[in-house]
Amino acid sequence: MPLHVIATAKQVMDPESPPSAYRVDREAKRVVPHPATKIPPVINGFDENGIEAALRIKDAVKDAKVTILAAGPSFSMDVMKKALAMGADEMVLVQDPALDNVADSTVTAKVLAAAVRKIGPFDLIISGRQASDWDNAQVPLGLAELLGVACVPVTRKVEVKDREVVCERILADGYEVVSAALPAVVTVSNELGQPRYPTLRNIMAAARKQPTIWKLADLGLAPADLAPRLLVMDLYIPEKTSQCELIKGENEEDSGRLLALKLREAKFI
């Protein structure tokens, strides 16, 4: 049996959009793009690191299969196909309007756990450390609990050796080497390194692949399973009042000099 790695990937609004690109629909309690700008969808950045980690394992152990798993109300195929073009073998999309604007991580974890069970046996799940919409860093930890397997969060290196996953988990002042028996869940951070670019060959192969698409009903989930317990009461754009004093000298060098004098005058140095 090939080693089966599932990499989770969430489609999110591009988080590198400028603050002015965001608007909030306060009634619906959701973030929407500014009408004049268009925030493009992307695969969550840390999930691209996760796909990279999965592909590195595949490169190392050779006999491995990488399945991409995503859940959401709808997907841009152009965006999601990047995961296949990077080199993943298969993709499962749980696509259901009921997954619109889910803020409760437990709900998402339940959906993903049900999908993982339906996909079948797996050895390792790799997720991003957090999704750049709600920055929760919760879903993979919940997923591990629901599946009853070990969890190693926030790692920068993931290797599989002799039915064990060995990771470098990032700590504030260094790292620790952690191992767990498979199956397990790990999450990765940008310290893992840049995700690879799709090769032409993989892009063409990806174009021919059809993702498997499931609805919630296909997973045997009922609306009651999805009742959120984390409730959003309000959502708004925080006000930022600027009180910056721009220092202008005769030229740029002079501005630098005056800035130093200003800091002294204001007793900050």
Partner: peptide
């Protein structure tokens, strides 16, 4: 009731836990 930044700090959410 908790107040927390979301979307990298571009938005603020007020949430509560119903359990």
């Amino acid at each position: 009731v908790a107040v927390r930044p979301v979307y990298g700090g571009n938005c603020t959410a007020v949430v509560t836990v119903a359990s």
